[in-house]
Amino acid sequence: MYQKFMVPIDLAHVDALEPALQVAADLAGLYQATVCYVSVTANTPGPVARTPAEYAKKLTAFARQQGIEHGQQTESRVLISHDPVADLDELLTQAVAELGADLVIMQTHLPRKLDVLLPAYGSKVATHTNASVFLVRS
């Protein structure tokens, strides 16, 4: 039913993303789908990597490790932004089309009052793409 999953992740918070990663692995097994891990990172040095190239290298390693762990096809893609916090939604939305992903699985937080001002990231991806979106709540 689904051929390609897009799983947005932040390498700085992999622990918090564990539920989404698990869902992605389980469903990929079910549908024999390829999982593409996508990260948005700044072009300035950050906690995970000091250059965008280093980030890409780490994400590739992460994707490969997930593939080995779950016995699946994996890919990775790093999106560079000069203002990741502001551009995240838009970049993820574009990435869905570019990758040809048909299912997006992403971790999100519980609904809260602040969402009016600072909406959760998944909502924009759901309203602006044709892909199915699976929001995993922690």
Partner: peptide
């Protein structure tokens, strides 16, 4: 280095002999 246990089996191109991939 920022990482603790990263796998060094990257396909990402980086200059040979470099511990850390340089910027572009």
């Amino acid at each position: 280095m920022a990482s603790n246990s990263q796998h060094d089996e990257s396909e990402q191109a980086s200059a040979p002999g470099e511990r850390l991939p340089p910027p572009e």
